[in-house]
C-alpha cells in the first residue's frame, strides 16, 4: 500500500501527516489527529455524522480521501467556536436537540454552515436542509427548532465575520 503526505490545516493548526493513500479524511481526523468528535456512522455518505467543513463548505469526511485534502483548511465540530457556533450550542441545549449525541457533531457542522449563509428559512426549509443528517433517537423536532432559532438569531444580529 502506497502512502501520501498530506499538508492540512485542522481547526487552525497546520499539520503534515503521512497516511496510506486509501485513508479517508474521517480516519485521518479520528485516528491521526485524535479528534474523535467527527463520527463515522454509515461510511457511505447517507447518515451525515462525519460532516466536517473543508475550506468553509460541508463535506462527508467518509467520502473524502485524505489525499484530496492536501492544502485544505478543515474545521471539525471541535473547531466551531464563534458566535454562530455558540448560539447553535445554546439552542441545542435548550431545545433538547440531542440524546445519545452520535449525530450531534454532524448536525452542528451542517447547521453551522446553514446559518452562516444568512438566508431566511422557515421550518420546512430547515428540515430539508438537515435531511442529509440522520438522528435515530431524539427525533428531529428539537434539532430543527434549534437550528432555526440559531438561524433567526444570526439573521437578527448580523455579526457574520
Amino acid at each position: 500500500m502506497s502512502t501520501v503526505t498530506v499538508k492540512v490545516n485542522v481547526n487552525g493548526t497546520p499539520r503534515t501527516i503521512e497516511v496510506e493513500s486509501r485513508t479517508s479524511l474521517a480516519d485521518l481526523l479520528r485516528d491521526r489527529v485524535r479528534l474523535t468528535g467527527t463520527h463515522l456512522g454509515c461510511e457511505q455518505g447517507v447518515c451525515g455524522s462525519c460532516t466536517v467543513l473543508m475550506d468553509g463548505l460541508p463535506v462527508r469526511s467518509c467520502l473524502t480521501l485524505a489525499a484530496s485534502c492536501d492544502g485544505a483548511e478543515v474545521v471539525t465540530v471541535e473547531g466551531l467556536d464563534d458566535a454562530d457556533a455558540h448560539r447553535l450550542r445554546q439552542h441545542f441545549s435548550t431545545e433538547g436537540a440531542l440524546q445519545c449525541g452520535f449525530c450531534t457533531s454532524g448536525m452542528l457542522v451542517t447547521g453551522y454552515e446553514l446559518v452562516r449563509r444568512r438566508t431566511e428559512m422557515d421550518r420546512d426549509q430547515v428540515a430539508c436542509a438537515l435531511a442529509g443528517n440522520i438522528c435515530r433517537c431524539t427525533g428531529y423536532n428539537g434539532i430543527i427548532r434549534a437550528v432555526q432559532k440559531a438561524n433567526d438569531d444570526g439573521m437578527a444580529v448580523d455579526d457574520l465575520t
Binding site: G45, V59, R60, L63, A129, A131
Partner: peptide, 9 residues
C-alpha cells in the same frame, strides 16, 4: 442533488 455536503464535492 443529494445533500449540501454531497453537492460540495
Amino acid at each position: 442533488i443529494g445533500y449540501r455536503a454531497i453537492r460540495c464535492r
